[in-house]
């Protein structure tokens, strides 16, 4: 099992948000505070892992023609479980995430991974895929939350950290900030990935020349 390789894919080279461009709605909507980001990230990770395991178990039973409908039912079941548990144990987080918890059902990350990975791979590999992709999603959420909460409200985890003379750039916690921050983040990732690709290409070119 190459956990390391899958982890690198989930976090950087095949990150669900910045590379596969899945799950945009929730990413931009809820990243206004770190608490929200952790709540959403962990929920998605749990649902993604469970759904991946379950779909990998059933991959030989589910007929090809109705697979999407089957996947959606499985995912909706797990989402309902997580939704109810959040409401029971973390009512504050459930309230601030609101409609976006039930909407995980139609989050393209989960259906996308079910279709692209879990329906073709073993149970163990699918479980690892769920965890690593979930981590990648959570990492992106946390980066966005950090920037938007720190600069937009001057706080981290609800605690004032910026000096009182700092005037928060309130626009960042508004919907506009979501679009702009995610755009900038994806651009930065593309820049970094292109750069490392260029480097690799150059190194290869050198070796070939020698």
């Amino acid at each position: 099992m190459n956990f390391g390789k899958q982890l690198k894919e989930g976090l950087i080279t095949n990150n669900p948000v910045t590379v596969q461009l899945l799950g945009m709605c929730s990413t931009m909507a809820i990243t206004t505070s770190i608490t929200n980001g952790i709540g959403m990230g962990v929920s998605v990770m749990i649902i993604l892992t469970l759904a991946n395991i379950f779909i990998a178990l059933l991959r030989k039973v589910i007929p090809d023609e109705v697979r999407i409908a089957c996947f959606i039912v499985v995912i909706a079941g797990f989402v309902t479980m997580v939704d109810l548990s959040l409401q029971a144990f973390f009512p504050a987080i459930a309230k601030s995430l609101g409609v976006f918890i039930p909407l995980i059902v139609v989050n393209c990350i989960i259906l996308g991974r079910a279709e692209a990975f879990a329906s073709k791979n073993s149970v163990a590999a699918s479980a690892v895929d769920g965890i690593t992709q979930g981590l990648g999603y959570t990492a992106v959420l946390l980066v966005l939350c950090f920037v938007r909460e720190l600069l937009g409200a001057g706080k981290l985890l609800g605690v004032q950290v910026m000096p009182s003379s700092y005037v928060p750039a309130g626009i960042l916690v508004l919907p506009v900030g979501g679009f702009l921050c995610l755009g900038a983040l994806i651009a930065a990732m593309q820049w970094a990935l292109n750069k490392s690709k260029e480097k690799a290409a150059k190194a290869e070119g050198k070796e070939a020349a020698e």
Partner: peptide
């Protein structure tokens, strides 16, 4: 060039 595709759409 880094903004090609999705980033420019998001901005």
């Amino acid at each position: 060039k880094s903004f090609e595709g999705f980033p420019i759409a998001l901005i």
